[in-house]
Protein backbone atom coordinates (compact mmCIF):
# COMPACT_ATOMS: atom_id res chain seq x y z
CA UNK A 1 0.00 0.00 0.00
CA UNK A 2 1.41 3.37 -0.97
CA UNK A 3 2.02 5.64 1.95
CA UNK A 4 0.19 8.92 2.03
CA UNK A 5 2.05 12.13 2.71
CA UNK A 6 0.44 13.87 5.64
CA UNK A 7 2.55 17.00 5.53
CA UNK A 8 5.78 18.64 4.62
CA UNK A 9 8.48 19.96 6.85
CA UNK A 10 8.48 23.69 7.50
CA UNK A 11 11.31 24.01 9.99
CA UNK A 12 13.31 21.70 12.22
CA UNK A 13 16.10 21.31 14.72
CA UNK A 14 17.76 18.33 16.34
CA UNK A 15 14.91 17.69 18.75
CA UNK A 16 11.80 18.55 16.81
CA UNK A 17 10.35 19.88 13.62
CA UNK A 18 7.26 21.68 12.47
CA UNK A 19 5.31 20.19 9.63
CA UNK A 20 2.58 21.90 7.70
CA UNK A 21 -0.40 20.40 5.97
CA UNK A 22 -3.55 21.82 4.47
CA UNK A 23 -6.33 22.09 7.04
CA UNK A 24 -8.71 20.17 4.85
CA UNK A 25 -6.51 17.13 4.88
CA UNK A 26 -7.09 14.42 7.42
CA UNK A 27 -4.04 15.24 9.48
CA UNK A 28 -2.61 12.79 12.05
CA UNK A 29 -3.98 12.75 15.56
CA UNK A 30 -2.14 14.18 18.53
CA UNK A 31 0.31 11.58 19.80
CA UNK A 32 0.54 9.70 16.50
CA UNK A 33 3.84 8.21 15.46
CA UNK A 34 5.02 9.65 12.15
CA UNK A 35 8.05 9.04 10.02
CA UNK A 36 10.14 11.36 7.88
CA UNK A 37 12.47 9.54 5.49
CA UNK A 38 15.88 11.14 5.22
CA UNK A 39 17.15 8.77 2.59
CA UNK A 40 16.47 5.34 1.18
CA UNK A 41 17.78 3.69 4.34
CA UNK A 42 17.26 6.29 7.03
CA UNK A 43 14.01 7.30 8.66
CA UNK A 44 13.36 9.71 11.51
CA UNK A 45 10.48 8.90 13.85
CA UNK A 46 8.51 11.48 15.75
CA UNK A 47 5.36 12.00 17.72
CA UNK A 48 2.83 14.66 16.93
CA UNK A 49 3.27 16.77 20.05
CA UNK A 50 1.29 19.80 19.11
CA UNK A 51 -1.14 20.74 16.40
CA UNK A 52 -1.36 24.40 15.70
CA UNK A 53 -4.02 26.13 13.65
CA UNK A 54 -3.34 29.82 13.29
CA UNK A 55 -6.00 32.42 12.98
CA UNK A 56 -5.89 35.70 11.19
CA UNK A 57 -7.98 38.83 11.08
CA UNK A 58 -10.48 37.39 8.64
CA UNK A 59 -11.08 34.26 10.63
CA UNK A 60 -11.49 36.32 13.77
CA UNK A 61 -14.01 38.53 11.97
CA UNK A 62 -15.88 35.59 10.51
CA UNK A 63 -16.15 34.14 13.94
CA UNK A 64 -18.15 37.19 15.01
CA UNK A 65 -20.82 36.52 12.37
CA UNK A 66 -24.04 34.99 13.66
CA UNK A 67 -23.64 32.06 11.30
CA UNK A 68 -20.97 30.95 8.92
CA UNK A 69 -21.86 29.34 5.63
CA UNK A 70 -20.43 25.98 4.86
CA UNK A 71 -18.88 27.39 1.70
CA UNK A 72 -17.06 30.01 3.76
CA UNK A 73 -15.83 27.37 6.19
CA UNK A 74 -14.63 25.25 3.30
CA UNK A 75 -13.00 28.24 1.67
CA UNK A 76 -11.06 29.00 4.82
CA UNK A 77 -9.98 25.41 5.13
CA UNK A 78 -9.20 24.64 1.54
CA UNK A 79 -8.14 27.85 -0.09
CA UNK A 80 -6.76 30.19 2.46
CA UNK A 81 -3.03 29.86 2.80
CA UNK A 82 -2.96 28.96 6.49
CA UNK A 83 -1.57 25.43 6.95
CA UNK A 84 -2.17 23.30 9.98
CA UNK A 85 1.17 23.24 11.74
CA UNK A 86 2.20 20.14 13.61
CA UNK A 87 5.07 20.06 16.01
CA UNK A 88 6.77 16.70 15.71
CA UNK A 89 8.94 15.61 18.58
CA UNK A 90 11.74 13.35 17.39
CA UNK A 91 11.84 10.09 19.32
CA UNK A 92 14.19 7.94 17.33
CA UNK A 93 15.27 6.79 13.95
CA UNK A 94 15.79 3.73 11.82
CA UNK A 95 18.97 3.11 9.90
CA UNK A 96 19.35 0.01 7.78
CA UNK A 97 16.30 -1.52 9.49
CA UNK A 98 17.80 -1.00 12.92
CA UNK A 99 15.66 1.06 15.26
CA UNK A 100 17.33 3.47 17.63
CA UNK A 101 15.75 5.61 20.32
CA UNK A 102 18.43 8.24 20.05
CA UNK A 103 17.78 11.56 18.41
CA UNK A 104 18.46 11.55 14.66
CA UNK A 105 21.98 12.37 13.60
CA UNK A 106 20.72 15.23 11.47
CA UNK A 107 17.29 16.75 11.25
CA UNK A 108 15.15 16.48 8.13
CA UNK A 109 15.18 19.35 5.66
CA UNK A 110 12.58 21.81 4.46
CA UNK A 111 9.66 20.28 2.60
CA UNK A 112 10.70 16.71 3.45
CA UNK A 113 7.61 14.53 3.44
CA UNK A 114 6.04 13.24 6.61
CA UNK A 115 4.07 9.99 6.72
CA UNK A 116 1.76 8.53 9.31
CA UNK A 117 3.17 5.26 10.66
CA UNK A 118 1.11 2.12 10.30
CA UNK A 119 0.12 -0.03 13.26
CA UNK A 120 2.84 -2.43 12.23
CA UNK A 121 5.46 0.33 12.32
CA UNK A 122 4.15 1.61 15.64
CA UNK A 123 4.49 -1.87 17.15
CA UNK A 124 7.94 -2.25 15.66
CA UNK A 125 9.15 1.04 17.09
CA UNK A 126 7.71 0.41 20.54
CA UNK A 127 8.56 -3.29 20.71
CA UNK A 128 10.87 -5.16 23.00
CA UNK A 129 10.10 -3.39 26.27
CA UNK A 130 12.47 -0.68 25.18
CA UNK A 131 11.15 2.62 26.33
CA UNK A 132 14.21 4.82 25.93
CA UNK A 133 12.30 7.14 23.66
CA UNK A 134 9.94 8.12 26.45
CA UNK A 135 12.65 10.40 27.81
CA UNK A 136 12.32 12.62 24.76
CA UNK A 137 8.68 13.16 25.61
CA UNK A 138 9.31 13.72 29.29
CA UNK A 139 12.11 16.17 28.59
CA UNK A 140 10.21 18.08 25.93
CA UNK A 141 9.51 21.72 26.56
CA UNK A 142 6.47 23.61 25.31
CA UNK A 143 4.37 20.51 24.70
CA UNK A 144 1.76 19.06 27.05
CA UNK A 145 3.96 16.13 28.05
CA UNK A 146 1.34 14.40 30.19
CA UNK A 147 -1.30 14.39 27.51
CA UNK A 148 1.18 13.54 24.81
CA UNK A 149 2.29 10.52 26.80
CA UNK A 150 -1.30 9.55 27.42
CA UNK A 151 -2.22 9.88 23.75
CA UNK A 152 0.83 7.93 22.63
CA UNK A 153 0.38 5.19 25.24
CA UNK A 154 -3.27 4.85 24.30
CA UNK A 155 -2.42 4.40 20.62
CA UNK A 156 0.64 2.22 21.09
CA UNK A 157 -1.08 0.21 23.83
CA UNK A 158 -4.00 -0.55 21.54
CA UNK A 159 -1.64 -1.52 18.71
CA UNK A 160 0.40 -3.78 20.95
CA UNK A 161 -2.72 -5.32 22.46
CA UNK A 162 -3.98 -6.08 18.99
CA UNK A 163 -0.73 -7.98 18.44
CA UNK A 164 -1.21 -9.93 21.65
CA UNK A 165 1.01 -7.88 23.93
CA UNK A 166 -1.47 -6.67 26.50
CA UNK A 167 1.24 -6.05 29.10
CA UNK A 168 2.78 -3.24 27.08
CA UNK A 169 0.80 -0.40 28.62
CA UNK A 170 1.72 -1.45 32.14
CA UNK A 171 5.37 -1.82 31.20
CA UNK A 172 5.42 1.64 29.69
CA UNK A 173 3.70 3.13 32.73
CA UNK A 174 6.22 1.40 34.97
CA UNK A 175 9.05 2.90 32.94
CA UNK A 176 7.58 6.38 33.28
CA UNK A 177 7.29 5.88 37.02
CA UNK A 178 10.93 4.80 37.12
CA UNK A 179 12.01 7.91 35.30
CA UNK A 180 9.94 10.33 37.32
CA UNK A 181 9.58 8.76 40.75
CA UNK A 182 11.95 11.33 42.22
CA UNK A 183 9.73 14.10 40.94
CA UNK A 184 6.43 13.64 42.72
CA UNK A 185 4.80 16.89 41.55
CA UNK A 186 5.46 15.91 37.92
CA UNK A 187 4.73 12.24 38.10
CA UNK A 188 1.33 12.31 39.78
CA UNK A 189 -0.43 14.49 37.19
CA UNK A 190 1.06 12.32 34.44
CA UNK A 191 -0.25 9.16 36.08
CA UNK A 192 -3.65 10.76 36.52
CA UNK A 193 -3.66 11.50 32.83
CA UNK A 194 -2.72 7.88 32.11
CA UNK A 195 -5.56 6.86 34.38
CA UNK A 196 -7.91 8.69 32.03
CA UNK A 197 -6.55 6.58 29.17
CA UNK A 198 -7.20 3.45 31.19
CA UNK A 199 -10.69 4.53 32.04
CA UNK A 200 -11.49 5.61 28.50
Amino acid sequence: MEKIIVGRLLRSNTRACVVGCPPAQQFPAFGSLVSIPLSETEVVYGLIGDIHIDDDGLVRQLATAPSVDEAVIQDNRLNRNVPVEMTVLFVGSKTENRISHLLPARPPLSLDCMYLCSTQELCEFTAGSRFGYLRHILDAQDVPAADLLAAHLAQAGAAQRAQGNSAWFGQAAARIITQLRDDYPRLMPILETLADVENA
Binding site: L62, A65, P66, V68, V72
Partner: peptide, 19 residues
Protein backbone atom coordinates in the same frame (compact mmCIF):
# COMPACT_ATOMS: atom_id res chain seq x y z
CA UNK B 1 -21.81 41.21 3.68
CA UNK B 2 -23.55 39.19 6.39
CA UNK B 3 -20.77 36.61 6.24
CA UNK B 4 -18.31 39.19 7.47
CA UNK B 5 -20.27 39.78 10.66
CA UNK B 6 -19.92 43.08 12.42
CA UNK B 7 -17.92 44.74 9.64
CA UNK B 8 -20.04 44.06 6.54
CA UNK B 9 -18.19 43.77 3.25
CA UNK B 10 -18.71 41.18 0.51
CA UNK B 11 -16.78 38.16 1.67
CA UNK B 12 -15.90 37.07 -1.82
CA UNK B 13 -14.47 40.48 -2.69
CA UNK B 14 -12.33 40.33 0.40
CA UNK B 15 -11.13 36.90 -0.61
CA UNK B 16 -10.34 38.15 -4.10
CA UNK B 17 -8.34 40.94 -2.54
CA UNK B 18 -6.58 38.52 -0.23
CA UNK B 19 -5.60 36.33 -3.13
Amino acid sequence: CRVMGSRPYPYLLHRAHEE
